[in-house]
Simulated assay, not measured.
Amino acid sequence: MGMMEKMDELASSGAREYLTFRLDQEEYGIDILKVQEIRGYERPTRVANAPNFIKGVVNLRGTIVPIVDMRLKFNCSKADYNSFTVVIILNLRNRIVGIVVDSVSDVMELPPESLKAAPEIDSVIDSGAVMGLGSLGDRMLILLDIERLMDGQEMGLVSGLD
């Protein structure tokens, strides 16, 4: 899917609500409809041979949920665990996945006209997983296609584990 189709898809959906969170200095937004709940960080159980950004799994009311540290995934300089560290529990096509972020800011409603295509830049994020940039006032959000991000080869969290 090209950038233009992606923007059309964003625009045609009308105003959308995004949960915003911080990683290092950046603020990201993900579709609120994919968010199941927000929890404090608890130490997950390690999984053998998992990539370093998969911290392990937690048992969430009987469901085993893989926990991905987005800060390690995005090569943030440091990944401290403190009282602000939160885990966003996502529901992606019937897979439950948790992502660790520095903090959750708020829920923002972005009208289509506040969305811009993301510039093509080399970054640690698969460019297909960046849906665009949203600006509201002086805030700039990087809008992530979180499903696509979790579906990448190295993650293998959504597709191969049915």
Rank of each mutant, 00 (worst) to 15 (best):
1 M>Q: 06
2 G>D: 15
3 M>I: 12
3 M>E: 13
5 E>G: 06
6 K>H: 01
6 K>E: 11
7 M>S: 10
7 M>E: 09
7 M>K: 12
8 D>M: 13
8 D>G: 08
10 L>F: 12
11 A>I: 14
12 S>Q: 14
13 S>W: 01
13 S>A: 14
13 S>H: 11
14 G>Q: 09
14 G>K: 07
15 A>Q: 10
16 R>I: 11
17 E>W: 00
17 E>R: 08
19 L>S: 02
20 T>A: 13
22 R>F: 04
23 L>F: 09
25 Q>C: 12
25 Q>M: 14
25 Q>E: 14
26 E>K: 15
27 E>K: 02
27 E>T: 08
28 Y>Q: 04
29 G>R: 10
30 I>N: 05
33 L>N: 15
34 K>P: 00
34 K>Q: 11
37 E>C: 12
39 R>C: 10
40 G>F: 12
43 R>V: 06
43 R>K: 11
45 T>E: 03
45 T>H: 04
46 R>N: 03
46 R>C: 02
47 V>G: 04
48 A>S: 08
48 A>F: 05
48 A>M: 00
52 N>S: 08
55 K>F: 01
56 G>M: 07
56 G>K: 06
57 V>Q: 01
57 V>M: 08
59 N>C: 04
59 N>W: 02
59 N>G: 02
60 L>V: 01
61 R>D: 11
61 R>S: 11
62 G>I: 03
62 G>R: 05
65 V>Y: 00
65 V>W: 01
68 V>A: 07
70 M>T: 00
72 L>P: 00
75 N>L: 10
75 N>A: 13
75 N>E: 15
76 C>L: 14
76 C>A: 15
77 S>C: 01
80 D>R: 14
81 Y>R: 14
82 N>Y: 05
83 S>Q: 15
83 S>H: 13
83 S>G: 12
85 T>C: 10
87 V>Y: 13
87 V>P: 14
91 N>Q: 11
92 L>P: 06
92 L>D: 03
93 R>V: 10
94 N>I: 06
96 I>P: 15
97 V>T: 09
100 V>N: 00
100 V>P: 03
102 D>I: 04
104 V>C: 06
105 S>E: 12
107 V>L: 05
108 M>Y: 08
109 E>S: 08
110 L>N: 01
111 P>I: 06
112 P>A: 07
113 E>A: 10
114 S>T: 12
115 L>E: 00
117 A>M: 11
117 A>V: 09
118 A>D: 08
119 P>V: 15
120 E>W: 11
120 E>A: 15
122 D>Y: 13
122 D>M: 12
123 S>G: 14
124 V>D: 07
126 D>R: 02
126 D>T: 01
128 G>R: 07
130 V>Q: 03
131 M>D: 10
131 M>C: 13
133 L>D: 04
133 L>W: 08
135 S>M: 09
136 L>R: 07
137 G>Q: 14
139 R>N: 07
141 L>C: 00
142 I>L: 12
142 I>T: 15
145 D>F: 03
146 I>M: 13
146 I>E: 05
147 E>P: 01
147 E>N: 09
150 M>S: 03
150 M>F: 02
152 G>T: 07
155 M>A: 04
157 L>P: 02
159 S>Y: 10
160 G>S: 09
160 G>L: 09
161 L>Y: 01
